[in-house]
């Protein structure tokens, strides 16, 4: 398979992730969709790395994983707190701040 196919897959995954952020209500699921976008990016990095024949992209993928892990820690902490206060994890319920 040519790297182009992987890039297409990466773009599709990224789009699915972005759409998921737009249509899902559960904060956890929204967050998972963002993670999906990050991983789609990883796939793109690795494919480009292969196309260019250098290792930069693969190294970057590791960095992204680390950052994503840190993001999970922070994100779950925030979502947990608000869930405990509100007894709901729907992102549509948090809309006191508006206009």
């Amino acid at each position: 398979m040519s790297p182009g196919h992987y890039l297409a897959l990466s773009a599709i995954l990224f789009t699915i992730g972005a759409l998921g952020v737009l249509v899902r209500r559960n904060a956890i699921v929204v967050f998972m969709c963002i993670e999906l976008m990050l991983n789609a990016t990883n796939l793109a990095f690795v494919s480009f790395s292969r196309m260019h024949g250098n290792l930069d992209g693969q190294i970057i993928a590791f960095f992204v994983m680390v950052v994503a892990a840190a993001e999970v820690v922070v994100g779950l902490a925030i979502i947990m707190t608000i869930f405990r206060t509100r007894r709901s994890s729907s992102v549509d319920d948090v809309n006191l701040l508006k206009y």
Binding site: I78, I79, V91, V94
Partner: peptide, 22 residues
Amino acid sequence: EAAVKYFLLGSFSSAFFLYGIA
């Protein structure tokens, strides 16, 4: 609420930023 919104939108935007880097 501010934290949740900032976090979700912030990481959403950094996903785009990262794809731009890619």
